[in-house]
Design a protein around this nucleic acid. Sequence first.
DNA 1: AAGTAATCCAACCGCGAACCT
DNA 2: CAGGTTCGCGGTTGGATTACT
Length: 358
Amino acid sequence: MGRAPCCDKMSVKKGPWSAEEDAKLKSHIEKHGTGGNWIALPQKIEGLKRCGKSCRLRWLNYLRPNIKHGGFSEEEDNLICSLYISIGSRWSIIAAQLPGRTDNDIKNYWNTKLKKKLLGDQRKQRTHKRRRVDSLTQEMAKEIDTRGSDDLSIGNITVGNHNISNQMMPYCPAMPSPVPALLRQHSQHNNHEPSALDPKSFDDNNSIRKLLIKLGGRFWDDNHHALLDHLPAISDGSLPVNTGYEQPVGLTSVQSDSARVRASEYCAEDDVRFLPMLEAQQTDCRVNLGYSTNNGYLQEGLGGLEFLSGNDSIMHDNSRLLAVAGDSGSCGPQVGWDELSNFVCAGNLSQGCGTYMN
DNA sequence: AAGTAATCCAACCGCGAACCT
DNA sequence: CAGGTTCGCGGTTGGATTACT
């Protein structure tokens, strides 16, 4: 049996709303409210030949008070990007974090501006990066010649005692913190099991996805557990390590020296292995991102997300790290700076081992 | 100035979940 | 509990506008 139409399409007007229609709808809702039934609403408004669905959309997106249009700020750009990186195209959740913005507005803004900004910037930098990685490759080759290959650990930010990240990695603020909690809220609100998060929205734009993954964004796919499966343990402060998760915190290697923590990730992406480099400091939460070639050589750059960076960015609280990429076999929970700094991995974490350091 | 392409964005559509009877 | 109705979401469309040739 087919679905009943929400209204009689023959007697309903479609297309752009006139000022008169807007005024009628606005006036009615301001006086009487929606009545809790959008479908019945237009019948109560004299001369408004619109279906309830259309009225709802018009009200929510344009007529209700305190709606902002256009003029997205840098902060809003940052927030949209980082939320998109973490949760994908869940526009309603994203919009809930941007007062005065509607999901439709943000969706349009992303599709027409932000997405292009990312891809456009990335294209511009590809050439520059290629040159840069060549020079880095040479430097690294020299380093290996000097030290011997034993010191070179792929998947580790450190080459011997050589602090690569400080020399080669650009500064980049990490992503903001609210996402895990938002997702949990949303999931609870909608009675979703965490695993019910549908990953299909991530499949739509491969190049964006790849770009964001390269930048350290975490995505789900069919082979991954839903991140939310891990969230309760994270949120109550007990980072799940050695508790049966395939891979703790999604990190293949972490080193800690009291205040400062370095982490890295070793992932396969197409035929290039890349290595988001994270350099975290509890006090200012700096994160550096970079890639490695499959030889472990480092490549700097943010792949087009430079506009997200800035010294005053959103990552100055004790935010959770949202930019840890998982390798093909794992999807551990995201980890905050607190947890990260307490976490030390011994040996090769592709085995999934890890310990807390008190 | 005219034609064409690209971009923007309001509105529509269909689906799944929630709610109601 | 089942079936119908409504809500809310995200993807898509198409007309208007702007940029380019």
